[in-house]
């Protein structure tokens, strides 16, 4: 059924720390590795070794440069992993004509039942985040499952019962938990660090949160007496001064 549940018992999702992500793409690779051989159809590649290669990924890492405004602060490079945000008001679910896309009442995970998907692509149109990709080999829509086949999988060690991207992240930039429970570790982290929604104006109410980069340190004044010292001469003298004046006249 492609109508959304009024309330989900849990809001399982990810918290992604933009301050600690180093942009190594390990989450991308482990995601592709796990999901190509587990839930649903494999994540195919087209022309993988040719000139014009492309393929299906459920998680991609962008990198953005931010130039702080005002003072002459240095530009910052921010690595930005992006996957399905498992929105509370998921527009991808309600547009689905077949009922293949659905949001689980028990934990809020948004999934695609691939047997029902006709590959119309409308859910990918409706997603502002580019979280859904139509697999070119299988003709069905692929998206992050929040590793639904890991998190409840009792055949795995308990430590592995988290999404593979979280398990693999070497810098601890990804966290998994119930964002509907305000006492959960992830909810506390979001409260502490000012976790934010992407494109809040789109009204999707994403469950996944992003932790903004912490403010950068300012370069300290290295000598308390420095401001009281004589300013260094600004005007050039001697040969350089002559050269400066001469070139100025030309």
């Amino acid at each position: 059924m492609t109508t959304l549940p009024n309330l989900t018992q849990k809001k399982l999702g990810l918290v992604i720390d933009l301050d600690t992500c180093v942009g190594c793409h390990a989450c991308v690779i482990s995601c592709k590795g796990w999901n190509t051989e587990n839930y649903g159809a494999p994540l195919s590649d087209q022309n993988a070794y040719g000139a014009d290669n492309s393929g299906t990924f459920l998680n991609r890492v962008h990198s953005f440069e931010v130039q702080p405004t005002g003072d002459e602060a240095a530009a910052q490079l921010i690595h930005f992993p992006k996957s399905c945000l498992h929105c509370e008001d998921a527009p991808c679910v309600t547009v689905c004509p077949t009922g293949a896309s659905y949001k689980r009442e028990e934990d809020g995970i948004v999934l695609v039942n691939e047997q029902d998907c006709i590959g119309c692509g409308l859910c990918a149109w409706a997603c502002p985040y580019g979280a859904r990709e139509l697999d070119q080999a299988e003709g069905v829509m692929k998206k992050c499952t929040l590793c639904v086949d890991r998190i409840y999988n009792e055949n795995l060690e308990e430590v592995d019962r988290i999404p593979t991207c979280v398990r693999t992240c070497p810098s601890g930039a990804r966290h998994f938990g119930d964002l509907g429970d305000e006492n959960s570790d992830v909810s506390k982290l979001v409260a502490e660090r000012g976790g934010m929604d992407l494109m809040p104006e789109q009204g999707t109410k994403p469950v996944n949160k992003y932790l903004p980069p912490r403010p950068k340190d300012a370069l300290p004044e290295f000598d308390v007496l420095a401001p009281f010292l004589e300013p260094v001469a600004q005007e050039a003298k001697g040969f350089l001064g002559w050269l400066d004046k001469t070139l100025e006249k030309l």
């Binding site: 962008h62 130039q67 405004t69 992407l198 494109m199």
Partner: peptide, 14 residues
């Protein structure tokens, strides 16, 4: 708004 990084400064795809 897409990146949530706007309050730091101007955002450019790097």
């Amino acid at each position: 708004t897409a990146t949530g990084l706007g309050n730091i400064g101007s955002v450019r795809a790097f």
